[in-house]
C-alpha cells in the first residue's frame, strides 16, 4: 500500500467533507434543533445542484445561481412543512413524499436528463475539484472554509434572535412554546425551509465541485448528514459547548467522515460497498449512546450487588 496515494487523495476528501459539512448543518437544524427527522434532504440537495447547474449553463452569475438554489431549497422545505403541519402527515413520511416528488422535479429541471455536465473549462464556477491541490485563491478548500465560517456566523446570529430563540424553544418543548405564545407550526415550517435551503446550497456547491449535476447525487444524503452530526457530537461534545462551535463540530464531523472513507478505500474496500459501510457506521454511532447508557446502568447494578455481598 502506497501511503502517497492516500495523502494525494486527502485534499479531495477534505473538500468533499466541507461541502457535506454545510449540508449536515441543514440536517443539524432539523434533527437536533427542531427535533424533526427530515428526509427531504436526499431530494433537495440534488434540486440545489440541478438548479445551479442549469442556471449557470444559461449564463447566470454563479452567486445568483447559488442564491436561486437556496431559495428553491427553501421551497422544498416549505412543501414538507405543509405536508407535516397543515395536512398532519408524520414528519418522516412528509419528507419521503417530497423527496420522491423531487426526483421527477429534478429530472425536469435537468431537461429530462439524468445528469448534466458543468465543466469548469466552459463556465465561470466558484469551485472545482480540479484546483484541489492548487496553492491559489481558487483552491476549493479555502473557498469552502470561508463559506463554512460565514454560514456558521449567520446561523449563530439567527438562532440568537427572538425568532431564532423561539425556533429553539419549539424544538426543545412544543407545549411550553405554545403556552408562551409561539406558533410552533410556523416555526417547524420555517426551520424545514432554512434547513433545506442550506442543503440545496450545498448541492449547488457540490455540482460545481464535481463538474456535473446528477439526479441521484442525493441518494443517502440524510445518512451522510447524520453521520457528520453524530461524529461531530461524539468527538467534540465535551469541549464545544458554544452554539457556533457545535455547528463547527458538524462540519469537522463531515470532514472526518470523508477522511475515514478515503482511508478504508485506500485499504482496499470496494467502492460499491461504500453505502453499506456508511449505513453501518451511522448505525453504530446512533446506537452508541443507547448501549453506553445500558452498560453504565448495568455497572451501577453490579456495584449494588457487590455492596450487599
Amino acid at each position: 500500500m502506497d501511503i502517497m496515494k492516500l495523502l494525494n487523495a486527502l485534499p479531495s476528501a477534505v473538500s468533499q467533507g466541507l461541502i457535506w459539512g454545510l449540508m449536515a448543518i441543514g440536517v443539524y437544524i432539523t434533527f437536533r434543533i427542531l427535533d424533526v427527522s427530515d428526509l427531504t434532504v436526499d431530494g433537495s440537495i440534488a434540486t440545489g445542484g440541478a438548479v445551479a447547474a442549469i442556471l449557470i449553463i444559461n449564463g447566470w452569475n454563479v452567486y445568483a445561481a447559488l442564491l436561486a438554489a437556496f431559495v428553491v431549497g427553501m421551497l422544498c422545505g416549505l412543501v414538507t412543512g405543509m405536508f407535516h403541519t397543515f395536512f398532519g402527515i408524520p414528519a418522516i413520511l412528509s419528507g419521503i413524499l417530497t423527496q420522491l416528488a423531487l426526483y421527477s422535479v429534478n429530472l425536469r429541471i435537468l431537461g429530462n436528463k439524468a445528469n448534466v455536465a458543468l465543466s469548469v473549462n466552459k463556465f465561470r464556477l466558484l469551485l472545482s475539484s480540479r484546483n484541489v491541490r492548487a496553492l491559489t485563491l481558487e483552491n476549493p478548500i479555502l473557498i469552502l472554509v470561508v463559506f463554512g465560517v460565514f454560514l456558521v456566523g449567520v446561523l449563530y446570529w439567527f438562532f440568537g434572535t427572538e425568532l431564532g430563540c423561539s425556533m429553539r424553544a419549539t424544538g426543545a418543548n412544543r407545549n411550553m412554546s405554545r403556552a408562551q405564545g409561539i406558533n410552533t407550526d410556523k416555526n417547524i415550517v420555517l426551520s424545514l425551509m432554512l434547513a433545506n435551503g442550506i442543503v440545496a446550497l450545498a448541492g449547488a456547491l457540490l455540482a460545481q465541485y464535481q463538474g456535473f449535476a446528477d439526479v441521484g447525487m442525493g441518494r443517502g444524503a440524510i445518512v451522510i448528514g447524520l453521520a457528520a452530526v453524530i461524529i461531530g457530537e461524539v468527538m467534540f461534545a465535551k469541549v464545544f459547548r458554544n452554539f457556533a462551535l457545535k455547528l463547527l463540530a458538524v462540519i469537522i464531523g463531515a470532514m472526518i467522515y470523508y477522511i475515514v472513507i478515503q482511508v478504508v478505500l485506500w485499504l482496499g474496500l470496494n467502492t460499491n460497498d461504500l453505502k453499506l459501510l456508511t449505513a453501518l457506521v451511522v448505525a453504530v454511532f446512533l446506537a452508541a449512546p443507547h448501549w453506553k447508557a445500558k452498560y453504565l446502568a448495568g455497572r451501577e447494578q453490579g456495584k449494588g450487588r457487590d455492596g450487599r455481598a
Partner: peptide, 30 residues
C-alpha cells in the same frame, strides 16, 4: 418538565416568556 425548555438556559427561558403575545423578529433574543 412541561413549563420550561430544558435545553435552554434560565435567562433564555425568561426572555421567551417576556415576549409572550408579541411579535418575535430579528432583534437579539435578550
Amino acid at each position: 418538565m412541561t413549563g420550561t425548555a430544558a435545553t435552554m438556559n434560565i435567562e433564555e427561558n425568561m426572555a421567551l416568556a417576556m415576549r409572550r403575545g408579541e411579535k418575535r423578529g430579528l432583534r437579539w433574543g435578550i
